[in-house]
Design a protein around this nucleic acid. Sequence first.
DNA 1: GCCGTTTTCGGCCCGACTGTTTTCAGTCG
Length: 594
Amino acid sequence: MNNREIAEIFHSIADILEIKAENPFRIRAYRKAAQVIEDLSQPIKDIHTNGKLPNIPGIGEGIAGKISELIQTGKLKEYETIRKSVPSGLLEMLNISSVGPKTVALIYKELGITSVKELEKAAKDHKLAKFPGMGEKKEENIIRGIKILRETKERIPIYEAELIAKNIISLLKKVPAVDKISIAGSLRRRRETIGDIDILVASDKPAEVMDSFTTLPQVNQILAKGSTRSSVRIEGGRQVDIRVVQTDSFGAALHYFTGSKTHNIRIRELGIKKGLKINEYGVFKRSKLAEEDKKIAGREEIDVFKSIGMPYICPEIREDRGEIEAGLSGTLPKLIEIADLRGDLHIHSNWSDGTNSIEEMAEASIERGYQYIAICDHSKSLRVAGGLDEGQLIERQKKIDKLNNKYKNFQILSGIELEIHINGKLDFSDDILETLDVVIGAIHTGFSQDENVNTARIIKAMENRNVDIIAHPTGRLLGKREGYKIDIPAILKAAGDTGTALEINAFPERLDLADIYLQEAKEKGAKFAINTDAHSISQLDFTKFGIGVARRGWLEKQDVINCLNIDELQKSLEKARERSTHHYPPGQKKTDLI
DNA sequence: GCCGTTTTCGGCCCGACTGTTTTCAGTCG
């Protein structure tokens, strides 16, 4: 049973307990545990085996016991019991907007409704309005909520969300009443996928802002409209929330509206201990008479942190994954920034499946301030992507040499995205690979091999001294395909041992390696390369999404090889090649197992 | 159910909007 499956069970338990109106804090504990498990970089069964479950914050004796039971028996008796007390259709109903646990409990108890479909019929037949707290509007909202539930994809890629947000912000910036405006929520934290889009505005004329917002051309439906908060649904079904505060509350509101929820709760708890109340309007010194609380901060976001004795914590790491503790102990990382990148080490050209020429990609990279790029076209066996054979590689080299003579202070590195075959063999011989500046090992075939095969094939490639980087290490496509089955901790360790860098592929639907693995990889000594995998000039701008992932993974400039200048990079690649060669003594290769 | 330089028991973040009420519960972020 893997992490996600276990997390889902705890989420379900929380849902069931909510319908049963159990202690809200107990419910919160289950949700917190589920979240923590989802964010783990290691398989929880390994942590269990090592007896380290109690070390995970948010997992206490009770839940640790339940995890044990799930791992050992594949089942949880208590879960089996309580799930029988509540039809599974009720849990699905919780996904309907405007329907919560109380509504679900009521309609189940009074009408015996156990599915979304039955609920829809009951609402249409006006069978709900007669109950206390229900009415015609509520019925309408339920019908609408069900329609939206069926039409809307749960989360969208960050790329798409950012386009929507930027578009709305550019329109709102033209509104005179808007003093300040910012993206907030998970988009500001640079999560890989986004649910709702959150926007914060500072204004002393909130009503004008709300009117402008709710009458934007892309708004399909107004879900709520108040004096400080409004929600709309736009074309395509996505929900956009806006919050308006006075300018002197903008910082506190930005902190609150950025989240994450668990981060906010932790910050506010720390505030309580210091006799402070922290909300979206500011930081307040608590007095005995509640109405006399004195505001001590709010204009700037950093002051929220300062008020509880902490330095600024960047949005990307506000996930309650240790940033609070690091803030208190003064050990926060200095996160990598986009300006730290000196080049892009994974770019395709029209020699394989890219749309632009090497020269065009180079010129566009110079414009972006890079010192170098590596052209890494596909290798010969990936015919569908126009993979290059040995002869074409020589031809391409001539072209690159010619261009390099032309540029000053910029260098095109000759590279390859090299197919790693199912048996771990590489697409080119070592003699050929020796001639290349950058070799990125990649898997594009044989996804369905079992975990041992895939793990061994990647590690075998890493052990080859000429392989510098592993492309999109897990092969996932967000919302479309899970990664291939691999032993991720083993891959991370091998990266540290062999000096082979792990790619953080910035392509919005890859974002692979994912943020949750980066800290562990770093602890194991791994280095990273943030690459766009661009197949055209415009895709060179995907860098920002890769940087977002790296920052969420707490990476610093020195962890990423393409922050090095060209001389340092070349030395570093050479050094890593030596490590690959010397790491495993002859006859002791792990991969001899296959 | 978790957690602890105020606590091993008694707390657990804080507020806005809607709909159905006539003061508030439910939902949501």
